[in-house]
Simulated assay, not measured.
Amino acid sequence: MVRDLGRLDLGKMGKMARFDQMNPPNRHIQTLEGPSLVELHRYSAKQMGQGYDRPREFKIMSALRDLIITAGVAAGVVTMALSGQAALAFDGTPTQTKPLSLEAISPSEALRYGARQYYSGDKAGALNSLRYAAENGQPMAAWKLGEMYASGDGVKEDDLKAFEYYSQIVREHGDDRPEAPDAPFVASAFVALGNYYLNGISDAVPQNVARARQIFTHAASYFGDPQAQYELGRLYQDSSSRMAVRWYNLAALKGHVGAQARLGETLFTQGHDDERKARGLMWLTIAHRRAHGQDSGWINALHEQYFGLASEAIRGRARAMADTWIDHNPAAVMTASTPALQ
């Protein structure tokens, strides 16, 4: 059983979330214990009422691309440091230098070097570099390690290790500002933790839907994360169509394809007039046009189902509204449907 080493305390939050800094012996493992759902909903409603939940594109992959570009600049210096190549004296003869370890470079340099190793195919080497960077306060490194362990990418798949790395990010960076460069990775870690609580980890993390909802609510309202908003919509789908529509709509406006499809489905099925049904079919049409990869199957099937139920007048109205929305929201159209966790 994973020990409960910290708690998400939104009840004492001002503009920023605060977390207990307990510095446990195992710096990775930390589960989250939050306030009641009433407190969370009150906080969420207050923030959204102030216009706090503003559209923002998920920038994880662009940040990783920037990291690789920066890594190329520093690659020569770091490679020499790590490989122990001899330096040249003033007279041109080699001097004897002691090979340097990871501790000889900064955590940010280790992160860049680890990224370069990963994308060049040296995942074993990347693992060591990223571990050092993660242990020394680099949330992007901890996030990448979590992704690697969650999917078995270059390592043996281990959900508990992934859970621990995501928990480390939340513990150490959960109070970062939403505008911070690493905020997308922090938000992604919240979503990953929420999904682990939603489904549980055998013999380690018990399933806890209420806690998952709390974590998703924080990521959705404080960070404005579209994936978290989508997950909340799914959780409310069967119990409150009004709340489901609220969260789906926020994610759909940011370009989340899955949220666009589910929003369309909910609006169409709950629609009592042609205008509402047309708006539902509009979102389904937008999602249908943008769907790709593993999402395309269920989204296309959903669109075909409700397109067949609509009258020709509703179909025409939906197509026109979809065209208008896409023309006026190019940034959202370019946004990935979900965080690109590559």
Rank of each mutant, 00 (worst) to 15 (best):
L130T: 06
A150V: 02
D122T: 12
D159M: 04
S167E: 07
E157F: 11
A142K: 01
Q117F: 04
E157Y: 10
A150R: 05
F163P: 01
F163Y: 13
L160A: 12
G114F: 05
E172Q: 15
A142V: 05
D159T: 02
A134K: 04
E135L: 10
S151I: 07
L127G: 02
A110W: 00
K161C: 03
N128S: 15
Y149M: 05
D122C: 11
V170W: 00
A133D: 04
S151N: 14
Q138S: 03
P139R: 06
A126D: 02
A115C: 11
V155P: 03
L145N: 02
E172C: 11
S151A: 14
A141M: 07
A142F: 03
Y118N: 03
R116P: 01
G154R: 06
R131M: 06
N136V: 00
M148I: 12
S120C: 04
F163N: 03
S167I: 10
P139I: 06
A134M: 10
A115P: 01
M148E: 07
A115G: 10
P139A: 10
L111I: 04
G125N: 14
Y166Q: 00
A126C: 09
Q138V: 07
Y118D: 03
K123Q: 10
R116E: 01
W143R: 01
K123E: 07
G146D: 00
A133Q: 02
D122V: 13
D158M: 11
S167V: 10
G121S: 15
G137Y: 10
K144S: 08
M140F: 00
L145D: 01
A126V: 06
A133M: 07
A150Q: 04
A150D: 06
A126Q: 03
W143P: 00
S120G: 09
Y113W: 12
